[in-house]
Amino acid sequence: MPETKSQSFDESQSAPMHKALQREIQLARNIQMKLLNGEKPELPTGEVSGISIPARLIGGDYFDFYPLGDGRIRILIGDVMGKGIPAAMLMILTRGAFRSAAGAAQGPGQTLTMMNDAIYKDLRKLGSFVTIFCADWEPATGTFVYANAGHSMPIVVRSDVGTVTLPVLKGVMIGGLPGQIYKEKTSHIQRDDLVFLYTDGIVEAQNAQGEMFKLDRLSGILVEQSRQTAEAIQNAVVEKVNEFTKGLPQKDDITMVILKADGDQRGV
C-alpha cells in the first residue's frame, strides 16, 4: 500500500537525518564557542576573563571585548531572549552589530544606540530582544563608563569593604523600542576591585530541590575569592555553581565576565 511505502521511506531517512542534524548542531556549537572564546585582550594593567556555558548545545548568551587602541577596552555582555538554536542565531546577529558599532561609536551609550538602530526591525519582526550591558574601561585610570539596555547591573567587590553598588542605570532592551538613545554613567574602579558582569542563568541555576543559586550566594563567593586572579575567580564560580546544581541540566545559559583592576589609580 502506498501509505506503508511512504512510512518505511520516512523511517529509513530519519536515522541519517538525525545524525546529520546532530553533526550540524555540533559544528554550529564549535563556531559559537570559537567566536565567544576568542583571544583575550592583553592589557598593560588589569586583566579580563569571560566564559559562556550554554544550557543546551548552543545558546543565546554573548560576551565580547573590543580594545579601543588608547588603553581603553569596550566590554559587552548580552542575553538573547529564548534558548538553543533560535537564540544562537540571534546571538550571531548581535555580535555582528556590536563588532560594527564598537569601532565607530564614541562610547558605550552610542554603541547600544547604534546596535539598536541596526537590529531593532529584525528583532521586532521575530518577536525577540536582547538585554545588554556595555562598558568602556580604562584600567590605568580606573575610569569605567557604562550604558545599559535592560541588563542586570554588575557586582563590584572592593577589598576590605565587600560588595559596593555602582550607580544604577536602566534602559530599554535592544529590540524594545526604535530610536532609543542610551545614557551613560561614569564610575571609578579601584585597584584590587573586582567587577563581575553576568547573565541571570547563574543566579537562577537550580538544584534538584528547585532552589535557585541566587545573588547572595554569588556575592559571597565573589567576596571570598576577590583577591584571586580573574581566571581563578571564574573557575571558582563555575565550580560552586556545579557543586550546587550537581550536574542537573539547567534551563538557561550561564555567562560571566570578570575584570580585575591592577593600576595605581585610587578610585572615587
Binding site: 530582544f129 538585554t131 539596555a149 535592560g150 541588563h151 542586570s152 536602566k170 534602559g171 530599554v172 532592551m173 524594545g176 523600542l177
Partner: peptide, 13 residues
C-alpha cells in the same frame, strides 16, 4: 519588567 525596560516601552508608546 523594570530591569529589562517593559514599563519604559509602555510609557513611551
Amino acid at each position: 519588567f523594570d530591569t529589562v525596560g517593559v514599563f519604559r516601552i509602555l510609557e513611551s508608546l
